[in-house]
Design a protein around this nucleic acid. Sequence first.
DNA 1: CTTCTCCATGGAAACGATTCCATCATGGTT
DNA 2: AACCATGATGGAATCGTTTCCATGGAGAAG
Lengths: 351, 351
Amino acid sequence: MEKRATIKDVAEAAGVGVATVSRVLSGGSASPHTRERVLAVAAQLDYRPSALGRNLRQRRTGGMGLLVPDLTDTFYGQLAEGVLACARSTGEPVVVGSTGDDPEQESELIGMLLEQSVDRLIAVPTGDAETWAPAVRAGMTVVFADRLPARPAEEEQQDAVDDLMRLDGLSPAVRPRPPEAPSVLADDRAGIRTAVRYLRGLGHRRIAFLGGPGHDRRVAAFREAVGTPVDEELVVFATGSRDSAYAAASGLFQSRPDLTAVVAGGNVLGEAAVLAARELDLRVPRDVSLVMYDDVPWAELCSPPLTVIAQPGRDMGYRAAELVLRPGVRRPRTVVLPTELIIRGSCGPRR
Amino acid sequence: MEKRATIKDVAEAAGVGVATVSRVLSGGSASPHTRERVLAVAAQLDYRPSALGRNLRQRRTGGMGLLVPDLTDTFYGQLAEGVLACARSTGEPVVVGSTGDDPEQESELIGMLLEQSVDRLIAVPTGDAETWAPAVRAGMTVVFADRLPARPAEEEQQDAVDDLMRLDGLSPAVRPRPPEAPSVLADDRAGIRTAVRYLRGLGHRRIAFLGGPGHDRRVAAFREAVGTPVDEELVVFATGSRDSAYAAASGLFQSRPDLTAVVAGGNVLGEAAVLAARELDLRVPRDVSLVMYDDVPWAELCSPPLTVIAQPGRDMGYRAAELVLRPGVRRPRTVVLPTELIIRGSCGPRR
DNA sequence: CTTCTCCATGGAAACGATTCCATCATGGTT
DNA sequence: AACCATGATGGAATCGTTTCCATGGAGAAG
């Protein structure tokens, strides 16, 4: 319970001023003699600078924030491990928050981080650009991982209008896009495309997509890969919870018994699909083929082992942390990491 | 990028002193008139007190630290979610670190938290009491979750000596136990005992235990439940990694093909056991029965679905957070939460 | 020898909050 | 009317660090 030595104690014990101690410890200039002396005294007193004083002085907290939807989801666990690994190597603290895929909670957590003067943040965003306005306004360095925030409703509307104009053969006015925030994403498009082609190659024609919150890019990729008008009943969404995922999967299988393959947009959805299929006595892959986004350790445990689109969760976290720690520098604003289709046993020829 | 209003700005705008503003905002006494006025101005300026100033003044950082071995392990993900949920309800930041089950990294992370003046910590400890000495010396409020730190070697030796004395019919001197730190644990003993009895009831006699780091209490419970000299070859340990777990499981199956049941001390070990069994063409449960510690969502996905000893990970985290936030108060120092044997399909009668 | 430059050095201000303490006003009691 | 108790209030100190700036000395260049 003894209290720690302060810089003042060190200064007195070494017979120098506090400014000198500070300089020595943070790499400023000092005579070799003084430097040695200060270092010795500091070591002897077991002095460790208090982050509190430094933070107040520089008006910022070191380290970074990390916001993920759910640490129970193995993929986000991997992502977090990546971030923590990078932070550990630099000795920086990471303040973690779990949003539960709820924009309101996300908003509150951003507020909390602001209050803490955390000015670097890695986030798997849930809310739209509006939710993120306070953060950028406060000058936070934000790096998005895994997804980008949805664009606000008005922009979507504008886009719809533009699309109509295009249909009429008009070219809409060029509007400046807001500068996109740095981000680390998986190549969803390629991943989904490869999966869909693979299923196509097996003869599947009625392929469904099971999506969750934040899977907009994946659905878009799915639509694009399928091409031609997509049967809208085959694209269903769940909220973040496991219950909702199960309900969505079960509903899908029941309402469209004619589907022969499913692409699950995330591992929670994949889990739900396996469970729902089993409950309805659908055999994988005989009755229905399944490809799951995310490679997680237990994908191999299923029987049959699941064919997955692997994305490097840990790497994504690590890269995002690097990006947020050393922003700028040749600004490779957006990093896209490759995905890989890992073929195991959950897909078969169309029945 | 505009900078936030400080308490001074509020004071000026409201025409009062900073002390008054502070009092109003932190529930001190003030006249209704002043209070209203200050509140109005604060709201209008969108003032949020900076945690930096407060922290420095009170010489402590709010919130808490959380140290877990690996966020990729679903159980620790659940635990972390529980902690975060509790912290979110009080608006407190949580600094999370991942130790990788390495005492050295744990030690460094403790140092980092000390530097940040984080004085409340929830930990799944990896190192022994010595590793934790700096934390208690600094007056941290530590709550251990899931396990307790190993006791230092010298104490173990002393215990061994005591045991010998007991064998000789002597009663060893009563030594004062160090005051045990508050902790939140699952009832490992009951859980393991129930599992072993269950396997016994199915006719199994050669039951193995697959342990990982920090599973001391579980092994002890296993030995106790099995009773009589345990066949030491049937108790094997892995380090934290998945590879090591797989190697341990595979080695166990190969060296002792006569075993008929396995208790895995954690979900990573359970996963490894399933994988190793499959690789060696051992059928579960026909050739070997398996009980896994930890109920995780994917346990149901395996085929057959795994029989597990469930422990309430999320609750454990939540309770630990409560404990660390409001210590004392009737000090229920150690909380033990119940475990439950959930019988699915991975155990069968002895072959 | 003078002057200029450069560097090491320490005092002091600053960061934004909390909190101690002195002051002042008010109202009630003797 | 004098006095005291009470409560509201603001000034100033404080927390531990970084950083600005002034000082002083040593060495180089003239």
